[in-house]
Simulated assay, not measured.
Amino acid sequence: MKRILVPVDFSIQSENALKTAAYYGRTFDYEIVAVHMLELSTAMMNNSNTTKETVLYLKLAENKFNEFLDKDYLKDVKVTPILKHYKVFTELNTLYNEEKIDLVMMGSKGATGFKEFLIGSNAQKVIRHSNVPVLVIKDEPLDHGFKKAIFACDFTDDSIGPYKRIKEFCDFIGLQTKMIYVNTPGKSFLSSAEMRNTVKNFFDKANNNSDHLEDVSYISDYTIEAGITNYAKSYDADIIIMTTHGRSSFSQIFDHSITEDVVNHVNIPVISFKILPKSERK
């Protein structure tokens, strides 16, 4: 059985993710691992004088968590609730490994402007550190599943591994997927022939049939983010699929993540797949 981890903070956004996860739990036999991250100070955890207060806080949190999970749409789905004292999102990777998580599904209302520059969104932080795919649900739950997706790919060698994992995921859930290449002005600009040659070489290296060349749409826009979001609207996509290197927050200042920008700004779900370092690739 595959396992979906859903971070729960009792917000409407986390409930949207939970409802979406419930659909996939029923339809594809996924188990939901719901995790609530407690915000207990180190002093409270380590000070023996506050033991009773800590126990009471934990009990209240547990009761609230159980009440939140007592929903009709979860009745026929296997749900495992977990309370963790995590303070930073990098620690979630430990939980992914311990619980053998296949997919993270979380809600988000995004971030813009000064807030985005300084701290970003929680979804952005999870994407940056997660070694498993992260599906971000926005304004509405997708409790009827996804039908149409666009996969924005740069068709470089780094994207071959994620492409294979994405194809397996889409085939498993029956997701109709359209791959797109976004061509922008500047040093990365390619002619039509160069784009098609890049895509053909990609499929050849990925051991896939070059007939898939005809399944790729070539988009021209001023930025990659604009190309992705504009095509998603015209294609009436339910979800956007992207890859990410998961750069650190410091490096984001100098070389920001397009995936995180899209997650923060669009109003439809986005799923990201990590590009693994060369040392971790099979």
Rank of each mutant, 00 (worst) to 15 (best):
R3D: 09
K200G: 02
D215P: 09
P269Y: 02
T243N: 12
L175P: 15
Q176L: 04
L190Q: 13
Y96L: 14
M44T: 06
Y23F: 15
V136D: 04
Y23M: 03
E39Y: 14
A22C: 05
G25C: 06
F146N: 09
Y163W: 15
N209P: 14
K59G: 07
V136R: 06
N93C: 00
S130D: 11
E260F: 00
R196N: 11
K84E: 14
A43C: 00
T243I: 04
I101K: 00
S48M: 11
T20I: 01
K2M: 09
K282P: 11
S220K: 14
A34Y: 06
I253K: 13
L40W: 07
F117Y: 12
N208V: 10
N207V: 02
S217A: 14
S14V: 06
L60C: 09
K278I: 12
D261M: 05
S41M: 04
H129L: 06
I224V: 13
F89G: 00
S191D: 01
E91K: 01
I219H: 11
A206C: 04
E168K: 15
K2R: 10
L190S: 11
N197V: 07
P133D: 03
G174H: 05
S249Y: 07
D215T: 08
H144Q: 12
I127M: 05
A149S: 15
F65N: 09
I180E: 04
A61R: 10
Y235K: 13
V79H: 09
I224Y: 01
F117H: 04
K178I: 03
S272P: 08
K75A: 09
T184C: 05
P269H: 03
V55A: 11
L92Y: 00
E39K: 14
A206I: 04
K200V: 05
G186A: 02
